[in-house]
Amino acid sequence: MIAFWIAVIVGVAVAVVYITLGVQAFARVRKEVLAAATTGATDDLSGDEVSDDGGFTWKAIGAVIFSTLVIVLLGVSSVFWYVPAILAIGSSVAVIAAFVIDRGSVQGERSDGKAEA
């Protein structure tokens, strides 16, 4: 039952951080959108800024190999049956990381804007 209680505690902590960052991101986006409505700023239509996420192929291959490995290991030993639960909470942690990266890039854009001004 230890694994269960650890998951509960970690899960609650992750949920708190996730919701906090999600609400902050939402407030930021909402402010941006309402400000854009006031100033008449339009959406970003520059195809040149589309990032190609370098190494996509390797990441996709890596993901296939890793997920296959996780499932193969389920047939090797019961110890590995706890890995999917850890990874499931990891999915929420990944979204948290995405929010943090997003916030960093928005702050970067703002400071670039100030420097240009």
Binding site: D44, V50, S51, D53, F56, A60, A88, S91
Partner: peptide
């Protein structure tokens, strides 16, 4: 546009555990 490609890669990667 700057994060569109990365978004699909991350979503695919972190969909797996579910």
């Amino acid at each position: 546009p700057a994060t569109m490609g990365r978004t699909f890669v991350w979503a695919g990667l972190w969909f797996y555990p579910i």
